[in-house]
Design a protein around this nucleic acid. Sequence first.
DNA 1: GTGAAAGCGCTAACAT
DNA 2: ATGTTAGCGCTTTCAC
Lengths: 335, 335
Amino acid sequence: MSNIREVARLAGVSVATVSRTLKSPERVLAETRDKVNAAVEQAGYRPNQMAVQFRSRKTGNLVILVPAIANTFFARVISGAQQAAQAAGYRLLLCDTQGREDIEREFAALVYAHQADGVIQLRAYDPFEAPFPNAESPPPIVNACEVIQGGRHPTISLDNRAAAQAMTEHLIALGHRRIGLIKGPKSSPLTRDRVAGYQDALHRANLPSDPALVCHGDFTLTAGYEGAAAMLALAERPTALFCENDEMAIGALKRLKEQGLRVPDDISLVGFDDIPFAAYCDPPLTTIAQPAERFGETAVNMLIALIEKQPIAERHVVLPFELAVRSSSAGCKGQ
Amino acid sequence: MSNIREVARLAGVSVATVSRTLKSPERVLAETRDKVNAAVEQAGYRPNQMAVQFRSRKTGNLVILVPAIANTFFARVISGAQQAAQAAGYRLLLCDTQGREDIEREFAALVYAHQADGVIQLRAYDPFEAPFPNAESPPPIVNACEVIQGGRHPTISLDNRAAAQAMTEHLIALGHRRIGLIKGPKSSPLTRDRVAGYQDALHRANLPSDPALVCHGDFTLTAGYEGAAAMLALAERPTALFCENDEMAIGALKRLKEQGLRVPDDISLVGFDDIPFAAYCDPPLTTIAQPAERFGETAVNMLIALIEKQPIAERHVVLPFELAVRSSSAGCKGQ
DNA sequence: GTGAAAGCGCTAACAT
DNA sequence: ATGTTAGCGCTTTCAC
């Protein structure tokens, strides 16, 4: 592999001129530029980025911490992030953390090791909060999707509380008074918000909030399947079921059908996220549409601004949701 | 951020000793080692990986070229790859190529720029085949999932032809004689193999191969939806529909139901991949199970062996498939 | 077993 | 506008 010295020799100029021709051509005479470019061509020269990065103290890499890569929603977020990173000349270092803080910390530490310039965290945990060696100022990090309440880092989030409230109100408007909720893990703030929104709606409609109607899952198909089973085992069944993501709703749907219940005639079912499959369920799933790709895209752009010390307009971006009403929710007949 | 010199000073040794203590502790006196480790601790020292990589000419990064990150199957492959990379101390540079060769070439070139040690390509295109600058020997690359026939690189694939044949034979055994096929893009070898397997089965059963029964899609839900519409518009409808991936099968399922057809009573429907949603369809989808995560995992391990110049047992790994028979396929009543 | 020193390929400050 | 040169932080001979 040829290096800058080789090119300089071929072009009959100094290495500095070669470097300039590549970085800021306007500072070089057109004539010289041509000589250099010809030499670059001839030598098949490609700057050794390891040396460039080392020298200029910038890797161009962004770490993205994902709880579960194979999750349909996160896959969309990653996709958006990758497009944005590519457009800006950055690369994405992917990390499947399985929601484990030790793994998150380990990967976030790539920034300390100068292997990445910043971190995108998609979960409500600050991988830098643990005492880190000589942590002068926290490294560039943005927190998207599930965000830390009152955290010190920029965030990109959805108003989960408002969204859950909107969904619950949709069900209430349809006449439902017993609405089951299959929520996420207890520890998740995202879940806390959605539960709060659900309760807000009940409260505003003067409906009782029955703890028996709330069970938790882990956002998987299986969790939805089992959550639905639990709901159906209740003495007084809910007439509508709100799952905190579409995967769980699809899992629940299977279970409801197996029990011989028709959706939405016998029970309404709604989800959250609007993954592509939601519209292809039978019946198509009423859900909350989230701009998944935009989470990734916005996070990347914000992180890059942080890294490049550009001014940031808003440190806490809230992306819009949309209630996507399809046929899995309908008027309550049981009344 | 402290550097190796700082640590050396603190420990009262030379930088070489610090370096040795970190890389090959056995070559250092236990006593010295302790001093150094204490100094490392005290300084909160983390080696600057940019310098390490620069100096040792090894990045620890692997590029993975993915046609569509948000695709459920690829998301699983990526997940497997990431786990394996992490376990081996490598990192994954993610690239969503959208199947575009220019993007694939651009990212593969990160290897030439010393930003990555090797490439995993999930599509049947050799990003290095174009004449590249002084390409002495092609850089480490492995080709997984959709592989180049007779290519020069190691591959990890499925016997797509055998799998498609097995699936088609399953349908034939159920009495189907007119089997529609919604395949992938024309250019894809993966699709060529599956079509070949489909035809093998027809041929072995002495069934005619009607070109009208084959239409192509692009592996999306929409493509399946539209493919099914095309099939149903046929004068002589198929009694079974084989989609080359589950997404298209799920798209088709929606369309079939909208037309008032019952699956499998009126028409059988089968897919390929066994994505998690397949088992949660209504009816659960008969499909070909592929070990998606293992593709990623095997590709990573093979690539690392290549990079580290370890001997490779087999250059062409074929992973097993499994026919997952569920309730979307049943005996043909139309006969 | 440890230290001194060269140098990886490049950038940027400074000199011309 | 171009060249000279000093490192960036580390690994790795080669002495001792």
